[in-house]
């Protein structure tokens, strides 16, 4: 399968990428690792006329201890996240979730920023970042702005990023090496989750769901039940409350709701150990 033709421009810096995006508007797409975009281009579901390769903007690949939080460059690869010592100590959940993205080959290329900007509700990292209450930093011609994870994912493959903005950094709180769980349910090892549930305990417990709607979702009813003193088994009964999961060849909506409840219970139990 061969993508539709396009012009290829390699950006040497974030600002250069933004300038090229501004020039071409919606006709241009950013290319980071390409693990989400290239498959869509090969199916010709995405046909940008200009591809702006930011894969070599090396100064956007880092995991830094920034005092009370961690700062992660948008072009940090999954491989570098799953092996990060800083994350092992201060945000074990992100390391563990990154290790479950795709397979080794995909993790050698794919980036956390690419996964976030793609906005696929079936992706692993967006749900983890939602559970972490992450902050996303977007840079455009007018400068930088911060976007809360809760406001970022707006629809299927739809995010708060403007066409001429580049996601540059992801900021997450320090939640420690333990106190989390990611339960990913799929048919084959490298598949997307049919449903996933991530729980992070850092004082309060937060729960987010993969593939239970058009965006990654916080399981707010579960969190409220836990805050009111409910046991994990009882709180997890609310995991599918208010969700409208899709039907596809892997699962009916009813099955997805069942999975959300079971996986949430397992996640809560494991996060508590």
């Amino acid at each position: 399968m061969i993508p539709a033709a396009f012009d290829y421009v390699r950006a040497g810096s974030a600002d250069e990428a933004i300038a090229i995006l501004s020039e071409h508007g919606d006709d241009a797409k950013l290319l980071a690792g390409g693990m989400s975009l290239i498959p869509l281009m090969k199916l010709r579901l995405s046909t940008p006329s200009v591809l702006v390769d930011v894969g070599r903007v090396a100064d956007l690949s880092y995991v830094r201890d920034a005092g009370d939080r961690l700062a992660i460059g948008a072009l940090t690869r999954h491989r570098d996240i799953e092996t990060s010592d800083v994350l092992a100590e201060h945000c074990g959940v992100l390391r563990a979730v990154a290790a479950q993205v795709g397979d080794n080959q995909v993790r050698h290329r794919g980036t956390i920023g690419g996964s976030v900007a793609h906005g696929d509700p079936a992706s692993d990292l967006p749900a983890a970042l939602l559970a972490l209450d992450a902050t996303f930093v977007a840079r455009g011609r007018a400068g930088e702005r911060e976007i809360a994870a809760a406001d970022f994912f707006q629809g299927f493959l739809e995010t708060a990023l403007a066409p001429d903005e580049l996601l540059t950094e992801i900021r997450v709180p320090k939640t420690g090496p333990r106190g989390f769980s990611y339960q990913k349910f799929n048919r084959r090892a490298q598949d997307w989750a049919i449903v996933g549930a991530v729980a992070v305990t850092n004082g309060a417990t937060r729960v987010a769901l993969v593939n239970m709607g058009t965006t990654p979702l916080r399981a707010l009813a579960v969190e409220a039940a836990l805050a009111a003193g409910a046991a994990p088994a009882d709180a997890s009964a609310h995991a599918a409350d208010g969700t409208e999961p899709a039907a596809d060849l892997n699962a009916s909506p009813e099955y997805r709701c069942h999975l959300a409840r079971v996986l949430t219970r397992r996640a809560l139990e494991e996060a508590a150990t």
């Binding site: 012009d7 919606d26 493959l157 066409p163």
Partner: peptide, 13 residues
């Protein structure tokens, strides 16, 4: 916003 419209409806070059 960068949404499905931007993703799916760009005419092929």
């Amino acid at each position: 916003r960068r949404g499905p419209g931007a993703l799916f409806n760009v005419p092929a070059s």
